[in-house]
């Protein structure tokens, strides 16, 4: 089948990409745009490593077709930091509190957390844990991730 040309707006930058209709957003971001910060852990929607924001809401980009995301505002981990050298509050808290080990879940965790804080700026611990229900981590037992998100919420507050 022929490729279709779509406009992907990623982290505020417009991109024109030719993709097969079955190409996932995760593939398009990683392979066509070189934004490899979005990780793939399962491709079945179970691990959350591929989480990105579309129009501010978190989605698993491995289950989202690139064509579905056309024309919408996509945020990936590369677009979270306010500049190339500064970190935002979530990123800073993840680093300082030890919420990162192997780092493979980290992009997805931060984007899920960002979505949570965008609609619930002062979440309880339980709310944080629930918001991460689609993001698996094999290294940290989630403890320090939860603490980092709580800390970032405070810093934002």
């Amino acid at each position: 089948m022929a490729k279709v040309t779509i406009d992907l707006r990623v982290n505020g930058e417009p991109h024109e990409v030719a993709v097969h209709p079955w190409r996932t957003l995760a593939q398009a971001l990683r392979e066509d745009l070189g934004l490899t910060g979005t990780k793939i852990g399962c491709e079945t929607g179970d691990c959350g490593a591929c989480t990105v924001l579309i129009d501010g809401r978190s989605v698993t980009s491995c289950l989202t077709l690139a064509v579905e995301a056309a024309g919408r505002e996509i945020t990936t981990i590369e677009g979270v930091a306010p500049s190339g050298t500064d970190l935002d509050a979530l990123q800073e808290a993840f680093v300082r509190l030890g919420a990162v080990q192997c780092g493979y879940c980290t992009s997805g965790m931060i984007l899920s957390a960002r979505y949570l804080l965008s609609h619930n700026p002062a979440p309880t611990e339980l709310e944080i844990r629930q918001a991460l229900s689609g993001n698996l981590c094999r290294c940290t037992g989630y403890q320090k991730i939860v603490e980092a998100i709580a800390e970032a919420a405070k810093a934002n507050g």
Partner: peptide, 23 residues
Amino acid sequence: QPVPRLDAPAKVTGRAIYAGDVT
């Protein structure tokens, strides 16, 4: 000391390169 991991900034910004990221 609770020294934060030195590779964490690269990981929280998506800049750490894993084998699958290499092209």
